[in-house]
């Protein structure tokens, strides 16, 4: 893509400086709230709050099952990621590679499912898990999220770019579809699967509406719902609120810094639908 381009040398460097001059302050503005969050959290008591506040940081830590929130978030996100990667990969393989009657119509039906906004599904899904007696349980929290149509699209797009030669070779040697899927497609699609896993994990970690509806007790709430309720419990302790926010953000930040190219690739892929 990059071409040798002599005439732009001087102007290019000029423009680059200008770009930095404009974009850098904006970039600092973008991360300022995060810095502010960390700074506020580290001060055990906001220095601007002059009136004496008892040090309820530790008190709140004991009162709120913070570890439990974290554990719930992890269980919820990891279970959903595992389910979504598995179901998306199999379904995407069928859509991308296999020929069967009704494929296009079925794909259209999947597309319709993608179009339904979350709020319209929240009410009946709640009634459904209520009928199963799954409200406020991991089953209820996890079961509804195990399939992601956008994940299927993402992988389908990627599978279509894999050359068919390898599959055909495997087929000639008498391998079944299942063997081809596991031995040829999945190993080749590892970057795409990782992209989906990263996006799905982030999506579940910050998912709010469904956990809010599907859980009742703090023993089942993931971090996002748990710390959203915090405000009502410890309104004064901003430092604690910021500490909670930092804790909620850190896993995502780590994920982002380790795998930010997957984030970017995922966004670019979904935008190309």
């Amino acid at each position: 893509m990059r071409k040798p381009d002599g005439s732009r040398g001087s102007r290019g460097s000029w423009g680059a400086w200008l770009t930095y001059a404009l974009a850098l302050p904006l970039a600092i503005l973008m991360i300022a709230p995060f810095l502010y969050m960390v700074v506020s959290a580290l001060m055990s008591e906001p220095d601007s709050l002059r009136h004496p506040v008892p040090d309820n940081f530790t008190g709140a830590l004991v009162a709120l099952p913070f570890g439990r929130f974290l554990l719930n978030s992890l269980i919820f996100s990891l279970a959903v990621v595992a389910g979504q990667v598995l179901t998306s990969a199999t379904a995407a393989y069928a859509f991308a590679r296999l020929r069967f009657p009704g494929r296009d119509r079925l794909f259209l039906a999947y597309l319709c499912a993608l179009m339904a906004p979350a709020i319209v599904l929240v009410i009946p899904r709640f009634l459904l898990i209520d009928a199963f007696g799954w409200v406020d349980s991991y089953q209820g929290l996890i079961s509804t999220e195990l399939v992601s149509v956008s994940g299927i699209f993402l992988l389908r797009q990627f599978f279509r770019t894999i050359p068919r030669d390898l599959e055909d070779a495997a087929r000639l040697e008498g391998a079944g579809e299942w063997t081809i899927f596991w031995r040829v497609i999945v190993p080749l699609a590892r970057p795409a699967l990782a992209t989906l896993a990263v996006l799905a994990f982030a999506d579940q970690w910050r998912s709010f509406m469904w956990p809010l509806v599907a859980t009742r007790s703090s023993g089942m709430q993931p971090l996002e719902v748990g710390i959203a309720n915090l405000e009502g419990v410890y309104h004064v302790s901003w430092s604690y609120q910021m500490a909670a926010a930092v804790a909620a953000v850190i896993p995502l930040m780590v994920l982002y810094f380790v795998a930010h190219r997957y984030f970017i690739r995922g966004i670019e892929q979904t935008a190309r639908v």
Partner: peptide, 15 residues
Amino acid sequence: FLLPYASSVVAVALV
């Protein structure tokens, strides 16, 4: 620039 998008909504709202 992508950092806010990749982080937690609730945490961002609290900040």
